[in-house]
Design a binder for these strands. Structure first.
Lengths: 222, 222
DNA sequence: CGGGAGATTGACTGATCTCAACCCGGGTGG
DNA sequence: CCACCCGGGTTGAGATCAGTCAATCTCCCG
């Protein structure tokens, strides 16, 4: 039930009993909004199934996708811990099952279970590191480089199916909102990559043919 | 010695005794590097005086300033907690005094002192929120908007002296490396702002005359 | 006085964005 | 059954923000 990399792996029996982990998760359909920018968050969400996009809305209404959450990921801990209103929106892009751990419970656990606190801290630090990488990329790389890099990133996070298709399906607009560019630019660059034999496009599905080339285009070295 | 918003405010007498907080801090001159990208960090740095810029180096060598640390701020906790190599460099831009808390000590505190863990978590969450805001801004706003916003941001973080000069002095290049643009662009935009009577420039010192206008240019609403 | 770092300015270029037209497939209501 | 609509996806043309390159200037320091 609780596997070795779950955020709950260090809870005691007693603690686990207080968490709704065995209860039925809430089910959400594609398009459903789990929480919205500016609202209060009741606690922290653990994704058991599905994919959620987490985005902020810019002043002109354009969405900027910050990250995705999938099975095993948690959402909303930032606002939960700082007791602030949500500063991002979470929207389902692949039907999801999610459980909610109440805010007081999380805070109580942080204060009383050191291993749990440490794990949570490491998750926050990991996200922080990724966010900082992201800032550097967006500030310094071209759209072309960022798109290549994002394809690699999606491949790492969601993997490929046995036909080499990315296991996540995004609209062109969503891709643009990750990379931070216009939809048309994504379309043009994707078809360029296709021309060059780097990817194949079947509607929203993207098949990755030449990962080496993407690494090169994206200036990814590590 | 430990004021009410110090990260150490929740330590017990015993715990405090184990921390080098009363010892003489290490002094660093402008230009000194406190830790460098790719190196191991011995622990976590608490700034008692001075200003440090924390930046990442892009693949072409251009630096991207992630944030500043000043009195009361901590640095390097991300790498310390995740036990990874530093992914950013910390360089002094105003003579600094800094104490170091060894990594094992920090981790031990996180695991045994819930209030400390909670405080640290909140700091991480705060940074994470700021990083996400930053991503959205860089991805969506123009250079002009970002520069205006950054001036407001610097004014909030470092305040103005009694002549309305920003209490932080940066080269044009550093300003460019925060905003994510070319040095020349910063120079041109600053002199535009000067033409419009929004700021005054005296070498590196920037006097803020019309904050309202900066808010407007930067599309800052909250 | 020479050297070097940082600041400035101008000219040019070009990567991206915006706008607009058009296509395509699916769903829906008449 | 068909016309229509709508959300995405594409493509082209033109406009432009911002980056690059290069020359010059100004301090400040040794």
């Amino acid at each position: 039930m609780i596997d070795s990399n779950s955020i709950f792996r260090h809870l005691t029996e007693d603690e686990l009993a207080q968490i709704p982990i065995d209860q039925d998760p809430e089910h959400y359909k594609r398009g459903a909004i789990i929480y919205e920018e500016g609202s209060r968050i009741p606690g922290f969400f653990c994704v058991q199934k599905g994919i959620i996009k987490i985005y902020k809305t810019g002043f002109d209404g354009k969405e900027q996708i910050i990250r995705f959450a999938k099975k095993g990921d948690i959402m909303g801990f930032r606002s939960t811990l700082s007791k602030e209103r949500a500063c991002s929106t979470a929207k389902v892009i692949e039907d999801a099952a999610i459980i909610l751990v109440p805010a007081e419970m999380v805070i109580h656990l942080v204060k009383t279970n050191g291993d749990f606190a440490y794990d949570l801290l490491r998750i926050a630090c990991k996200e922080l590191g990724e966010a900082n990488d992201n800032i550097t990329d967006i500030a310094q790389k071209t759209v072309r480089e960022r798109l290549a890099e994002e394809l690699i990133h999606l491949r790492k996070e969601f993997d490929l199916d046995n036909e080499k298709f990315l296991r996540i399906s995004l609209t062109r607009e969503e891709l643009a909102n990750i990379v931070g560019t216009a939809t048309e630019s994504v379309i043009r660059l994707l078809s360029e990559f296709k021309q060059d034999g780097i990817i194949e496009l079947h509607g929203r599905r993207i098949k990755i043919l030449d990962e080496k080339m993407l690494l090169k285009i994206g200036n990814i070295h590590d």
